[in-house]
Simulated assay, not measured.
Amino acid sequence: MITKKRLRPLAQDIGRMLGQGLSPEDFIKLMNRTELNCDTLEKISEGEDFVLAADSLGDDAYAYAEEHEKLGHLATASQYFSNACALYRLADYGIKDPTEEKMSINKKIYNSFRKSKAVTSYDKVINIEVPFEGNSIPGYLLIPDNAPKNVPVVIYVPGATGYKEENYLNARKCWERGVATIIFDGPGQGEALHYRNMYYTVDNYERAVKAIIDFIHNDPRLGNKIGIMGISYGGYLATRATCFNNDFISALVCRGGSSKTDDLTRRPIAGIEDFYLKNFTFKFNEYDNEIAKKISSEMNIGPFLKNITCPVLVQHTEEDPILGVEGAKNIYEMVSSENKEYYKIPGNVHCGCNENEKVGNHGADWIVDILLNA
């Protein structure tokens, strides 16, 4: 039973919501029902529970998509299945613990996303399963039409609270520029965490990325030139993976990342110490806070950054309320790469979501230019 009305999570700023696929019409509906009269731009004092409103609007969008799928209006159906997915993602984000309510909404995310891609004539998504340490990593593969057999591949790494469906549109930018793209849920993330009991350990994410690399090498449709991009905590994960797989990676983009997990888990936010640690106890499968803190402190790639020699792009805001800026600067300064760039994003919105299109396009252009021209 819900005893307290849930508000929009602070991390779900407007740029993030719209940049990750929430349609303007659904944004207006959601705001009107929860916190803002979009006609007068006045705050609403008695708005609805954010999770319930987003879930309800998701159901409305899904039903509308089903109606048009039956009519053969597949472009409309694809758009509204996608709208539903964006709304379910917001509802899911508003629930921290893996409750029955969260898991029910969570299943809708994967179903609506896959329905959207099953009926579209644009980006034909290939569902992949990559064997990993007795389990399987779920992901999506995009291959450009008429791609050469040696087509480069970009691996896209979601963040701590993101997952492959939320970050898909950022990953798709690379496919739109002519390279193949894989986005996946690794240990501690999304579908792999919730349904396959794949938890973070100090060093298993770099092995998960190596499994993706092996999958690429063994797929005759794909070439061996590989780039990797990570957003938010995925910037840490992608950089960590590159530290230990540098020989297989031709370029790295770290957007909004850091050089150690403590920058996220131990950072005081909104006056609360260790704000994100609770989220990681589930991801670590370790609910003793002191042990969780120890695991977090061991996830520090500072000593290994010198291993990175491939070209590196670090994109980071001037002030980051979630991760700070020290870790991003450490990555830029400590890698051994001769070709490296630090792209400062104006403001203090985490990952530069207030400039999502500009930042996302810059990162995609940078990595694709390297992969296609090196």
Results as ranks from 00 to 15, higher is better:
L90D: 00
I109Q: 01
G178S: 03
T309G: 14
E166S: 07
F304G: 11
I128T: 03
H68F: 11
E69M: 08
G139Q: 02
F215W: 10
E338A: 12
G19F: 04
R89Q: 12
E42G: 10
K294R: 15
A147G: 02
R33E: 14
R6S: 12
N348D: 15
Q79W: 04
R267T: 08
K96I: 12
D263F: 03
K358I: 13
N289H: 15
A75M: 09
A364S: 09
I28G: 05
L323A: 06
M299F: 02
L277S: 05
K173N: 00
F304M: 14
P152K: 06
A84G: 06
A171Y: 02
Y200Q: 11
A364T: 01
K43T: 15
K43A: 14
D185Q: 02
K293H: 10
Y140S: 03
T281I: 12
W175H: 12
F113R: 03
K306L: 09
N37D: 15
E129H: 10
E286C: 15
W366V: 06
S112H: 04
M103L: 13
E319G: 07
M31K: 13
A53W: 04
H73L: 07
D274N: 15
D59H: 12
N167T: 10
V209K: 03
A238F: 00
F280W: 13
N167S: 09
S56C: 08
T34H: 08
Q315I: 02
D97W: 10
P311W: 08
L371R: 04
S82D: 13
N373Q: 11
N218T: 05
P148Q: 10
L141Q: 04
C174Q: 04
A63G: 02
L36I: 11
I291M: 10
G257T: 01
S116M: 05
F215M: 08
K344M: 13
R255Q: 13
V179P: 04
Q189K: 00
G139W: 06
I212H: 01
R172S: 07
T99V: 04
Y62A: 13
R196S: 06
Y287W: 14
L18E: 13
V130N: 04
N289M: 15
L30M: 05
R266F: 15
E286M: 12
D369T: 09
M229G: 06
